[in-house]
């Protein structure tokens, strides 16, 4: 696999990861948003914090998730 494809896959996985975390932690995130120390510029930090865990998945595992999603879409279409 070329580096480019890997990068793209990583990006795709990362966005999937972020979407999952926000979905799973939505209740708590709402509470954080109303916390005193939450400012407008906290959002990028929060996104970074949520997304950083994506790196814990090996490239192979990321591939499993991302390609599965593509395969699924293919079937749906």
């Amino acid at each position: 696999m070329s580096g480019k494809a890997d990068n793209q896959r990583e990006a795709e996985f990362s966005s999937y990861y972020l979407q999952r975390t926000t979905q799973e932690l939505s209740e708590d995130l709402d509470k954080v948003r109303t916390a005193e120390d939450f400012k407008a510029d906290s959002i990028p930090f929060l996104v970074h914090a949520l997304q950083q865990g994506a790196g814990l998945f090996s490239l192979e595992d990321q591939k499993r998730v991302v390609t599965a999603s593509k395969g699924g879409k293919g079937q749906d279409a």
Binding site: K31, A35, E36, F38, F45, A49, G55
Partner: peptide, 18 residues
């Protein structure tokens, strides 16, 4: 604590450990 500070600290610790 459900605050940005805690999340920020957790994120920092995580990166430090990585």
């Amino acid at each position: 604590k459900l605050s940005m500070t805690w999340i920020g600290y957790a994120a920092f610790l995580f990166n430090t450990m990585r």
